[in-house]
């Protein structure tokens, strides 16, 4: 799941120079970590909705926590789907 998510991040966000192995599951995705920004958060939210049919509602959910790392995101998607 985590590797699948990493590939989704690379494809959805045009991270051409980055491979799955370059992304640490526990590193921060935004700002100082992978360096993603707010537009990427929206793009990633859309990609996750399309692929996993999981909607992340910015009004109800703690999006900072959900998007904090690949590991956190994978856990959230798995729990939302079950």
């Amino acid at each position: 799941m985590e590797n699948e998510l990493k590939q989704l991040i690379i494809d959805a966000l045009d991270l051409e120079d980055i491979s799955v192995d370059d992304i640490d599951s526990h590193d921060a995705l935004f700002n100082e970590g992978l360096g993603l920004d707010s537009i990427d958060a929206l793009e990633l939210g859309l990609a996750i909705r399309k692929k996993y049919n999981v909607k992340i509602d910015a009004e109800k959910e703690d999006v900072v926590k959900i998007f904090s790392s690949v590991s956190a995101l994978a856990k959230y998607i798995e729990s939302a789907r079950s």
Partner: peptide
């Protein structure tokens, strides 16, 4: 379909 937020921005 939904449009890409990046493309829109």
């Amino acid at each position: 379909d939904e449009i890409s937020p990046t493309a829109f921005s």
